[in-house]
Design a protein around this nucleic acid. Structure first.
Lengths: 107, 107
DNA sequence: ACGAACCGTTAGCATAGACTTACCAAAACT
DNA sequence: AGTTTTGGTAAGTCTATGCTAACGGTTCGT
């Protein structure tokens, strides 16, 4: 009969494989949608939809350049995401840190 | 026409909200299934199914105690998961670290 | 021995969401 | 002006999966 407390929509954004791949490519260098799609196993519209999600989450920023739109990672958004994931680790390992050092899985 | 390279099934495990909640509760203290379900907005079988996933992923370990089964976090598995997520960050921010310091979102 | 508590599993359902196809708009080039 | 390139959006499909309900099994207590 409990409920959740932390509203982490951030996880949903990075939960998707394709979105993570997009982020990695954009980290290497800012790219246009067509360039991203060329390196991914999905169609261009799919990439566009993912970019929309990433943009709404503040993880990427666009910049028009002729007919192309160059997407790049948004430093602030990425940092915020990292914090949110770190927050999970801090909470998930609260009072558990001491055990993490001595890895005792069942042999 | 590209393809993915990193097979990260680890993300799927933590992608679910309920599973993350279970991990956090188990970090506080090892608990039985019924206790976990009492603190979560889902039924007991749902918790059982999530625990199965977590167990197969090596994130939790069970220990029979009478009719109850006490679940606890598995230190080794949790550490491995953390490493896998960190690997994403290292890759996602390769050659991008220098920008992270100067947060310049569009105003 | 009977009942109660705890739990895993199955079947079935329902929703979310990722993808493709198709269409339309805007900018640049010839 | 017409064509090409780029890309956002809409509509529709389909798969994955999280959930509940129902059942059976095991252990403890009386």
């Amino acid at each position: 009969m409990g409920t959740y407390q932390s509203d982490d929509g951030a996880w949903d954004v990075v939960a998707d494989r394709t979105r993570r791949a997009i982020m990695e490519r954009l980290a290497e260098r800012p790219q246009a949608v067509v360039d991203l799609a060329a390196g991914l196993p999905v169609s261009r519209p799919a990439v566009s939809q993912h970019l929309k999600v990433l943009k709404e989450a503040g993880l990427v920023a666009e910049q028009a350049a002729g007919t192309k739109r160059i997407y790049r990672l948004n430093a602030a958004g990425v940092a915020a995401l990292r914090d949110q994931l770190d927050a999970f680790w801090r909470r998930a390992l609260a009072g558990y840190q001491e055990m993490t050092d001595q890895p005792e899985g069942e042999p």
